[in-house]
Amino acid sequence: MRFLIRRIFSISEKLRARPTVIRNYSNDAQKNEEKKEEEVRKNIVIEKFDTIVTLNIDRQKSRNSLDIPTLNELTVALDTFEKDATAKVLVINGEGGSFCSGFDVDELADKGYNPLKDASSRLLRRPLCDKPTIAAVSGYAVAEGFELALACDLRIIEETAVLGCLGRRFGVPQGMFGARRLTSLIGLSRALDLLMTGRLINGSEAYQIGLGCKLTATGTALGESIKLAKSLVKFPQNALIMDKLAAVNSQLNPNSEESMRDEAVMTSLLGNAIEDIKEGAKKFQGGIGKHGKFYKLTEVPLKDWELEETLEEVQVSIQKKDDKKS
């Protein structure tokens, strides 16, 4: 899909990371030597189509999970978009068929929850950006990836997309205001269903309950998001942003003592939750709960009778030839 879009728009690829090859022919001894200096591969690829910017998460081997370097790149990309006067709409996309699978579990197990949460602090902004943002949701948008999609203003969701709070399996809370955003979008009852059970929903159900502004076929979320962005940039932006901020602030930024107290209580609970997260990460690395499985998450000791060996007695009767003739 991205290749088709490139043919429609003029592309700026200055921000794409490419290997730089340096050849040194300064003297005869070094004439045949080739020195290669490769930049560290970037996990966030930015492309600009006139006034529309696409932010593409590119960690395909881990379904675009978010480690600390990726979160740092994401922060820079979002701030750059906000400061660019020529950029009007941001489309967030995941390369390779998945939007984002949440925090990198290996790094979560190695470095703990707080470093990843600190690295994702830019995503706590409500709204994510003052300018319009669109999530092109394909494949997996789970855990913090689900929260990232919720943080965007609009969501184009593919029919076969998979969304949900997969962190529920291992005690990982919604760390980027996902619970508040989800409740604001679909109401308390439906939000509690997804938050407490952690069950996964497909794109069709997500659209039915109000999470998406459009349901689209597999492989078309990015293209449809670009089309939606084009329909937004034609409007005068000041009034559009004013109305958007008024709506978002009325739902996500209630300025009251009760709200501040509730958030303080939730923060105090995080200390105990971190111990659960450590154990959950170890379980995942050991194979428990992989591929989105919610069963056999706990190890149940076998009872005595289950440990006993049972022997099945099999009787085999051999009929003699003489008996058969008679």
Rank of each mutant, 00 (worst) to 15 (best):
residue 146 F to R: 04
residue 148 L to T: 02
residue 149 A to K: 08
residue 149 A to Y: 05
residue 150 L to E: 07
residue 150 L to N: 12
residue 153 D to E: 12
residue 153 D to Y: 09
residue 153 D to M: 09
residue 154 L to H: 15
residue 154 L to Q: 15
residue 155 R to H: 12
residue 156 I to T: 05
residue 158 E to M: 04
residue 158 E to W: 03
residue 159 E to M: 04
residue 159 E to G: 05
residue 159 E to T: 07
residue 160 T to H: 09
residue 161 A to E: 06
residue 161 A to M: 02
residue 162 V to A: 08
residue 162 V to G: 04
residue 163 L to M: 14
residue 163 L to S: 07
residue 163 L to K: 08
residue 164 G to L: 02
residue 164 G to W: 03
residue 164 G to I: 03
residue 165 C to D: 08
residue 166 L to P: 05
residue 167 G to N: 00
residue 167 G to H: 02
residue 167 G to A: 00
residue 168 R to E: 01
residue 169 R to L: 01
residue 170 F to A: 02
residue 171 G to N: 00
residue 171 G to R: 01
residue 171 G to W: 00
residue 171 G to Y: 01
residue 172 V to K: 02
residue 174 Q to N: 05
residue 175 G to I: 05
residue 175 G to Q: 02
residue 176 M to C: 10
residue 177 F to V: 12
residue 177 F to I: 12
residue 177 F to M: 14
residue 179 A to V: 05
residue 179 A to G: 05
residue 181 R to F: 03
residue 181 R to N: 06
residue 182 L to W: 00
residue 182 L to H: 01
residue 182 L to M: 02
residue 183 T to L: 08
residue 183 T to Q: 10
residue 183 T to A: 12
residue 183 T to N: 11
residue 184 S to K: 13
residue 184 S to H: 13
residue 186 I to M: 07
residue 186 I to L: 03
residue 187 G to W: 03
residue 187 G to S: 07
residue 188 L to N: 11
residue 188 L to V: 10
residue 188 L to Y: 12
residue 189 S to I: 07
residue 190 R to S: 13
residue 191 A to R: 05
residue 191 A to S: 05
residue 192 L to Q: 07
residue 192 L to C: 07
residue 193 D to M: 06
residue 193 D to N: 07
residue 194 L to N: 01
residue 196 M to D: 11
residue 198 G to E: 03
residue 199 R to T: 00
residue 199 R to M: 00
residue 199 R to Y: 00
residue 199 R to W: 00
residue 200 L to D: 11
residue 200 L to I: 12
residue 202 N to Y: 09
residue 202 N to V: 07
residue 204 S to H: 14
residue 205 E to Y: 13
residue 206 A to M: 04
residue 207 Y to H: 15
residue 207 Y to G: 14
residue 207 Y to P: 14
residue 208 Q to T: 14
residue 211 L to W: 05
residue 211 L to N: 07
residue 211 L to D: 06
residue 212 G to H: 12
residue 212 G to M: 09
residue 213 C to L: 14
residue 214 K to A: 13
residue 217 A to G: 14
residue 218 T to E: 15
residue 218 T to N: 15
residue 220 T to S: 14
residue 220 T to L: 11
residue 221 A to P: 11
residue 221 A to W: 08
residue 222 L to R: 05
residue 223 G to M: 14
residue 223 G to P: 13
residue 226 I to Q: 02
residue 226 I to V: 12
residue 227 K to V: 13
residue 227 K to Q: 08
